[in-house]
């Protein structure tokens, strides 16, 4: 076995034990476990939403009433909205949108973050300066306003919302990746790999990124609820997901005219946003504790 292989194997081993350690730590975080139990329900409901929706979420006048939200009844468990659409169906449809905005836009942010972070960390120099400065700027700007401005120039559809949110959320991930790579860059086995002729791409992919795994996973988990909140804020201002497609944010946009008379219109979407975001935050917190060795055993 060459030294390089040995180092890599021990690296893998280390990661495995690290993971099981982390899992043990994670299980102790009661709130995180709560999040991990509740969140799959949301995801399952969203995935199988089209089968379990009692009504077509966009069918106007499912109840024959238009113009006045109707309170919950046996037929419509959470009432109907202004257009006579079944609220349960709309909330399920909203779950699909909100969750996919969360996952996709953070996915985009993750890709950008990984690429920029690796470039900055691995090549350093002008790359590093430019990318870190860029991240600083993006972090210190009022993001919502910029997203609103950019979004107001694009055709308003859900894909643009995802892309724009992604474009404005990569900074933390990039920073973390850069930091990890800087740490590892000086280690001997990387030098050895370079000496043996491994390409920089494969070094980044096989040796460096796996090490950044833990912090990136945490940052991603915390990024998702942030994206969900951003989407709801945008839709609430009428600049996000376009009706009749329901998202929790634009249900609130429609419902805000009715807050004093129709609680079933505005309370459930808010509760659902909060609960989803809460679960992600719990899990994120649990992961952070689990992966942070300084907290271990406390």
């Amino acid at each position: 076995m060459t030294t390089v292989e040995q180092a890599a194997t021990s690296n893998n081993l280390k990661r495995e034990t690290q993971l099981s350690l982390a899992w043990r730590q994670f299980k102790r975080h009661k709130l995180a476990v709560f999040g991990l139990c509740v969140l799959p329900i949301f995801i399952l409901v969203a995935v199988f939403g089209n089968w379990i929706m009692p009504y077509d979420p966009n069918a106007v006048a499912a109840d024959g009433v238009i113009g006045m939200p109707q309170p919950p009844s046996r037929k419509h468990l959470l009432g109907v909205d202004l257009y006579g659409r079944d609220m349960v169906s709309r909330l399920i449809s909203g779950a699909q949108i909100s969750l996919s905005v969360g996952f996709v836009s953070v996915g985009i942010a993750l890709i950008i973050g990984l690429i920029l972070g690796s470039l900055a960390g691995f090549y350093g120099g002008i790359f590093d300066t430019l990318i870190t400065r860029l991240a600083d700027i993006f972090l210190s700007l009022p993001r919502l306003f910029l997203i609103m401005i950019v979004n107001s120039y694009l055709p308003p559809n859900i894909y643009n919302v995802m892309v724009v949110i992604g474009l404005f959320s990569w900074m933390n991930i990039a920073r973390l990746v850069r930091g990890e790579i800087l740490k590892i860059k000086t280690l001997d086995y990387i030098h050895a790999s370079t000496a043996l002729g491994a390409s920089s791409g494969s070094i980044i992919l096989t040796h460096m990124l796996p090490n950044a795994f833990a912090p990136v996973i945490v940052a991603t988990t915390i990024g998702i609820p942030y994206a969900i909140l951003l989407e709801s804020a945008l839709s609430f201002l009428g600049l996000g997901v376009m009706p009749p497609q329901a998202s929790w944010g634009n249900i609130l946009y429609e419902a805000r005219q009715w807050i004093s008379v129709a609680w079933w219109y505005w309370v459930p979407p808010g509760v659902l946003i909060s609960l989803t975001v809460l679960c992600f935050n719990f899990i994120g917190d649990g992961l952070r504790d689990a992966f942070d060795p300084t907290l271990r055993g406390k």
Binding site: F236, I273, N281
Partner: peptide, 18 residues
């Protein structure tokens, strides 16, 4: 505080107004 972080501000505003 977790709940505070997770609630959209405008929704909280609805609750306060109501």
């Amino acid at each position: 505080s977790f709940i505070g972080i997770s609630m959209p501000g405008f929704w909280l505003a609805f609750i306060l107004i109501t």
